[in-house]
């Protein structure tokens, strides 16, 4: 496997002048078939990585759009196993896939089995938003053992002395939550985000990605040069709700990344 080589995510997300874009979709939203289709199209749309959500009944960190997508996916019978299949089918397109889910589905599936099967499916990394660094083991150990990157989050409320700890636990990239709050498109990026990103950049050599609330060209323009990548979630899920596949939005947003 990829032991000791630079991670695929690290390579894919490191900005080289431009700003990289990461898209988010929910496995099984609006159906399993359609989420695979959308994932494959997004994979070829110029994004640097794709986050695939595994639905959870109680998504603490998500706003209404992603919560709703998760409920639809669950109603249509999406499971952890099904989401791993979605990931596998999308990953064959060559785009690095990051799974995003909550800790309980991982525990219920068995973290060891989850890590092994995710690696088998060609997944590059995992983000668990309700797993702070204090609670990371032993789940993170299983992910590491399967050569999966474990991405931890920094929030606007994270004290500076904690940022370094989070960076040293992370691999692949650092996920910087831009808002004090839950996922969902916002009109404006909050004040202080540039300072937060600068602080994180100072404490890591990993790529830094910002997410939560990012949906517009002007957001990306404001972020370009200050970090490596931006994650667009709710805005894409919203397009998928309206029968789109998110690629039009990605193309639009990519213009602001260069």
């Amino acid at each position: 496997m990829l032991a000791d080589t630079t991670s695929r995510l690290e390579t894919a997300l490191k900005a080289k002048g431009d700003l990289k874009l990461v898209a988010y979709i929910m496995a099984g939203h609006p159906s399993k078939k359609r989420s695979i289709e959308v994932g494959k199209r997004l994979a070829g749309s110029g994004i640097a990585a794709l986050e695939i959500g595994i639905p959870h009944s109680d998504p603490l960190a998500d706003g209404p759009v992603i919560q709703h997508a998760g409920q639809v996916a669950l109603q249509h019978g999406m499971t952890v196993e099904g989401a791993l299949e979605v990931a596998q089918q999308v990953a064959v397109e060559g785009v690095p896939v990051v799974l995003m889910t909550y800790i309980n589905p991982v525990l219920a599936y068995d973290p060891r089995k989850f890590a092994a099967e995710a690696a088998q499916a060609g997944v590059a990394g995992v983000i668990v938003p309700d797993l702070p660094i204090e609670e990371a083991e032993p789940v993170a150990a299983w992910l590491r053992a399967a050569s999966l990157d474990t991405v931890f989050m920094v929030a606007p409320t994270t004290p500076p002395d904690r940022i370094g700890d989070i960076c040293s636990h992370s691999s692949g990239f650092i996920y910087c939550v831009t808002v004090t709050g839950i996922t969902g498109a916002r009109k404006e990026l909050p004040e202080g985000i540039v300072e937060l990103l600068a602080e994180v950049k100072k404490q890591t050599t990993l790529p830094v990605a910002a997410g939560f609330g990012i949906s517009r060209q002007d957001h990306l323009k404001a972020l370009r040069g200050k970090l490596d990548a931006a994650v667009v979630g709710s805005a894409i899920v919203d397009e998928i709700n309206r029968a789109g596949d998110g690629t039009a939005l990605v193309r639009e947003l990519l213009k602001a990344c260069r």
């Binding site: 702070p132 929030a155 606007p156």
Partner: peptide, 22 residues
């Protein structure tokens, strides 16, 4: 999840919350 931290009653408890709340 048995690693010893404050706020666990045996294996139970912990702080499984978004980083924002830590």
């Amino acid at each position: 999840l048995t690693h010893p931290v404050d706020g666990r009653f045996g294996a139970f408890g912990g702080q499984y919350v978004p980083e924002t709340l830590m």
